[in-house]
Computed example of a mutant assay.
Amino acid sequence: MSTDWDVAVVGAGTAGLAAARVAAERGLRVVAYERMSPGGQLVNLTVLHDHPGGTGPELVSALTAAAEGAGVRLSCAEVTRVHPGTPARLETADGEVAAGAVVIAAGLSAGRLGLPGEEALVGRGISTCAGCDGPLFRGRPVAVVGDDEWTAEEALELAGYASAVTVLVPGEPRWSAARAARLAADERVEVVTGAAVTALRGEGVLSGVVVRTADGERELAVAGVFPFVNRRGPEGLVAGLAADADGRLVPEDGVLVAGDARAGAEQSLTAAEADGRAAGEAAVAALAAGAGSLRVVDPTYGVLPEDDAGPVEATGSTATWRDVALFTNSKPNATELLRGLGARLQAHWELPELGFAAKDSASVPADPDQIDWLSQRFKMVLVAVGD
């Protein structure tokens, strides 16, 4: 199986960065794709109430540094389609790439009300980021539309800027009791259940919304509306993969999905991070299961024929002979032995590439940069030493 990457992660938010780091720490070649910049919607959060990571940008910085430190390559190329298989194929803005395993951690789309004239008012009163646009509504009334944890958190953040925050819940709230208590304790926040926004008011700039409740319709004068309804998962991104009613993907047939993009996922940072780690471990296990076994031979007596002693299983290893490098301490007999072994391996397994490196002198320590190169480029390094 020829691949550009061992693991490709689509989405570099909390779940995606966690999955990528775990796989890279196991020695795999990992790329994480994010169309804009790492962090996803996490970069828009100021205070994190369900994660000990400080602010959103601080957590993004820590997750990104950990992933890159483990060897993850970050790419801003947009992934437009994923085709499962062995290997999987990804259509990206930079061309098609192949990967041994793919983790989908693309999160959810921005919220939308689905009303006429809505798109023209985006950025002119309609926003989906309290951390970004909250200060623009300082001292003015706003409305937040939704029923989940994200809705409640954005409403609480907006309460620090706006004169009043009306939370319009289409049905009944789905947020936690702890968030419900915080909303109730803030005198600037009002929660209205069974409320549907039926129309937008304003010419060029939002001036209000029409709200329908069990008591009838009324107009609510607000300077801003923050919709968190109709946030969709990445339905259609993976060819042939089923999705739930909200467009969130249902993992199956070896396709790994992590974070908010996964059907049934809990919407919290801690849950997303744990989900990402689990997906990374699953990717490692999947590649290990498909890696086959390694045959150990004694170069003194030549390569054993296929019908001779059976292969020796390399428990827990994901190495293939295409990813083998040779390293010697520069002693002549060790170098000769290793080059002979390498030549036999390359001929027997028809390897297109076989890495080779040696210390400048047997009496000096190995160059750390050289060791780093070997560990990052190759999955297995055969070492020979001699006196």
Rank of each mutant, 00 (worst) to 15 (best):
2 S>D: 15
3 T>D: 02
7 V>R: 03
9 V>N: 07
11 G>K: 04
12 A>Q: 04
12 A>L: 06
13 G>Y: 01
17 L>M: 14
18 A>R: 04
20 A>H: 02
24 A>N: 03
27 G>N: 08
28 L>S: 07
31 V>L: 06
36 M>L: 15
37 S>P: 00
37 S>E: 13
38 P>R: 03
46 T>V: 15
49 H>W: 07
50 D>T: 08
53 G>K: 02
54 G>D: 03
61 S>Q: 15
62 A>L: 13
63 L>C: 05
65 A>S: 14
66 A>W: 02
67 A>L: 00
67 A>I: 03
71 G>R: 10
72 V>R: 04
76 C>I: 14
82 V>G: 06
87 P>Q: 11
89 R>K: 13
94 D>N: 15
95 G>K: 14
100 G>T: 06
114 G>R: 10
115 L>H: 09
115 L>P: 08
117 G>M: 10
118 E>C: 12
123 G>E: 12
123 G>S: 10
128 T>E: 01
130 A>Q: 04
131 G>V: 08
138 R>Q: 11
143 A>K: 03
143 A>Y: 04
146 G>V: 05
148 D>H: 12
148 D>C: 00
150 W>I: 10
161 Y>Q: 09
169 V>S: 07
173 P>C: 02
176 S>L: 03
176 S>M: 04
181 A>D: 13
182 R>C: 02
184 A>M: 09
185 A>T: 09
187 E>H: 15
200 L>K: 10
201 R>S: 15
211 V>S: 14
212 R>M: 03
213 T>Y: 10
214 A>H: 14
219 E>T: 15
220 L>C: 12
221 A>F: 12
221 A>I: 12
231 R>N: 14
240 G>E: 08
242 A>V: 09
243 A>Y: 04
243 A>T: 09
245 A>N: 09
247 G>S: 11
248 R>F: 10
250 V>H: 11
253 D>F: 04
255 V>L: 05
264 G>F: 11
264 G>E: 12
264 G>V: 11
265 A>C: 07
265 A>M: 05
266 E>W: 05
268 S>W: 00
269 L>E: 01
269 L>V: 13
274 A>W: 05
275 D>K: 01
275 D>G: 14
277 R>K: 12
278 A>K: 05
282 A>H: 02
282 A>D: 07
293 S>T: 14
294 L>F: 08
295 R>S: 09
295 R>G: 02
295 R>D: 01
296 V>L: 14
296 V>Q: 02
298 D>E: 09
302 G>D: 06
314 A>L: 14
314 A>K: 01
317 S>D: 04
322 R>M: 02
322 R>H: 12
330 S>A: 15
336 E>W: 13
346 Q>W: 00
346 Q>P: 00
346 Q>M: 05
358 A>K: 08
364 V>G: 06
364 V>C: 07
366 A>Y: 06
375 S>Q: 11
377 R>E: 10
378 F>K: 11
379 K>N: 02
379 K>C: 02
